[in-house]
Amino acid sequence: SGNANTETLPSGWEQRKDPHGRTYYVDHNTRTTTWERPQPLPPGWERR
């Protein structure tokens, strides 16, 4: 039932692989990409 990797990503993020097989992350909220895995927001924090 779903990929465990995507469940731990913050809302709006997606994990992808480039043509060389390297994993990167897409932030659909800001339309940016990063090599660093995004950290889920700490409990009690809200994204503004």
Rank of each mutant, 00 (worst) to 15 (best):
T8E: 14
K17Y: 08
E36L: 15
H28F: 03
Q15L: 11
Q15D: 11
R47S: 15
W13V: 06
S1D: 09
D18K: 00
L9T: 05
Y24A: 03
G21Y: 01
L41T: 14
R22A: 10
E7I: 09
G44S: 11
P43C: 14
T34H: 13
H28T: 08
G12Y: 00
P42M: 05
D18L: 01
N5A: 04
S11T: 11
E46V: 08
K17A: 04
E14C: 04
E14Y: 00
D27H: 11
E46P: 07
L9E: 06
R31I: 00
G2Q: 13
T30Q: 08
P43V: 12
Y24V: 04
Q39G: 12
T6V: 12
N5Q: 02
W45K: 15
E7P: 12
N5V: 07
D27T: 01
L9Y: 02
A4S: 14
W45H: 15
L41H: 15
H28A: 05
R37K: 14
Y24I: 05
G2D: 15
P42A: 11
G21A: 01
G21E: 00
H28G: 08
W35M: 05
P19L: 05
T34D: 00
G21Q: 03
D18A: 02
A4G: 13
N3A: 09
N3G: 05
N5K: 11
N5C: 12
S11V: 14
T23I: 04
R47W: 08
H20A: 12
N29S: 08
P38V: 01
H20M: 12
W35K: 04
T30D: 04
Q15E: 14
P42E: 13
Y24K: 01
K17T: 12
E14P: 01
P10A: 03
W45S: 15
T6E: 13
G2L: 12
P43I: 06
P40E: 09
E46I: 07
L41V: 11
R47H: 14
A4R: 13
T34V: 02
E14K: 04
P10V: 03
H28E: 05
V26A: 01
D27C: 06
L41D: 15
T8S: 14
N5L: 08
P43N: 13
T33M: 06
R16S: 07
E14S: 06
Q15A: 13
P10D: 03
R48P: 15
R31H: 12
T33D: 01
E14W: 00
E46R: 04
N29W: 04
L9N: 03
